[in-house]
Design a protein around this nucleic acid. Sequence first.
RNA 1: GCACCCAUAGCUCAGCUGGAUAGAGCGCUGCCCUCCGAAGGCAGAGGCCGCAGGUUCGAAUCCUGCUGGGUGCACCA
Length: 578
Amino acid sequence: MNLFADIRAVVIDSLDALVADGTLPGGLSFDNVAVEPPRDPAHGDMATNAAMVLAKPAKMNPRAIADALAGKLTADARIASAEVAGPGFLNMRLTPDVWQGVVKAALTDADYGKSTLGQGKKMMVEYVSANPTGPLHVGHTRGAVFGDALATLLAYAGYDVTKEYYINDGGGQVDVLARSVFLRYQEAHGQEVAFEDGTYPGDYLIPVGQALKDKVGDAYIGKGEDVWLQDIREFSTEKMMDLIRSDLAALNIEMDNFFSEKSLYGTGLIESAIAELKEKGLIYQGTLEPPKGKMPDDWEAREQTLFKSTDFGDDQDRAVQKSDGAWTYFAPDIAYHYDKVNRGFDALINVFGADHGGYVKRMKAAVSALSDNKVPLDIKLTQLVKLYKNGEPFKMSKRAGTFVTLRDVVNQVGASVTRFHMLTRKNDAPLDFDFAKVLEQSKDNPVFYVNYAYARVNSATAKASAFADVSPATLAATDLSGLTSEAELTVAKKLAEWPRLVEIAAKGHEPHKIAFYLYELASDFHALYNKGNDDVSLRFVQEGDVSTTQAKIALIRAVSVVIVAGLGILGVTPAEEM
RNA sequence: GCACCCAUAGCUCAGCUGGAUAGAGCGCUGCCCUCCGAAGGCAGAGGCCGCAGGUUCGAAUCCUGCUGGGUGCACCA
């Protein structure tokens, strides 16, 4: 049930009727007709811009359209009044039983808020995709939380979503990893080792070196890279992916699929992807212009195989082969996305860190070329996370050992708090993460504010259950006609916005909107709760009046249902009590 | 030098894809617990929506140009 969609349907039907009786000319498009909550609730419950949108194409005065439309609309039993206001807004007021119906829907329809917007379209969300060279850090955490919430949101909105992690296990950084593990392996054999520049000195490789020793004994001691590099590469990427998988599990993230870059090599997949582009005339041999800004010291013109990404709005064509003929990192990425297209996805979303901003245009170029513009690729960049400890900015440095990992964060504040907090900003705004503040228990902290509302609902329900049957089955069948006070209807109206909000958030790929909505819902709930202090009739628990109590508990259980659903999209589990 | 992102209350940020008098939290001022959890609520002060143009019935929102900040800019991933 989506009340806004229902009322919009009434508006469209009424417009059709106006066309039929000649009031409006034929051939009008109603696509831009919207039914929305008015900015100011005093204007009414819902407003439509129909008259203003249609005034021009119909060559009519907007107020004349609005007047005619108003007459038709009030024929619907749900619409108590329809008034023309301002330049041609049509403000509608709905009858209380409509809002009571929303409460009922939230309690009886297990799918209240779910949408069919996606129509089962296949969608891939690729996120995290961190190099398999170490544990995830805070920056990865934000991308992980964002991607995961977005995937859940899209599934909730009716898309068939696949969550995927692309493992960059094909490039030179894995050699670096292997050499670093070899050092730890030697160390495990009691040798003195030195970590030079270009190796990973992190402690997390110590157990990997030990495990390698347990596996191969001293077989690689004193041997050259030609003997061990390949094997240690595989061994240590596997270990790193185990580590990363467990990091993700700590955040309650489970991928549907891990896709290995290495698996593309030697299978002809890269070659066929490039061949596909070549057929379209987008691959050529050429030399790139030197960079315009600061010139690298060792720059020299070299002929390479290039992809004509400038045809798709990129600033520069991009190399797919190095001057020595080896593939660049871009080539397997093209092949990977070619594979995504061939797997039949209707739309792709990639979640990258902000430092990959320069990569967006060429990736979009590749996908539009490979899919003949049929598969849209949306790339969401998550901005930096600024850490604070005790109110002071906290700089991360690998060398200084102040490197903050995902584990550090989750261990200190918990998965739920981490997830919610990281979704209280839109992805393209920088995020402050203060270890003290996110644990603060006040309304300054949205996580607790929302959870507090949930806990209050539970508390009131428990109190009511002492004398009234407030089981879900009973509440679902409860007569709600007593819910007529302005304060109660305000909460019900907020609940009515939920399905609409899900669609808006899903369309825009903006899971943070869920978090803000939950805050608003909690705020309306807390306001109602406190009104009970002054006005006894608004208290949820009416001692000795079973049916009134049941109706009021039904309302707040509906709030709780939506809170749980919303938090579920964000991947947050609320505490029952606080 | 170029590209992308950002600019809204003293601070941190929303603003539902072009709608009505621009909202919330913190901070500040003042109220509300013999009362379902005050971990809360109510009210007040506080704005040239960075600047200048443009598009139209209508712009914080779309376009252009500036200003200021962030990020990235051959053959690393």
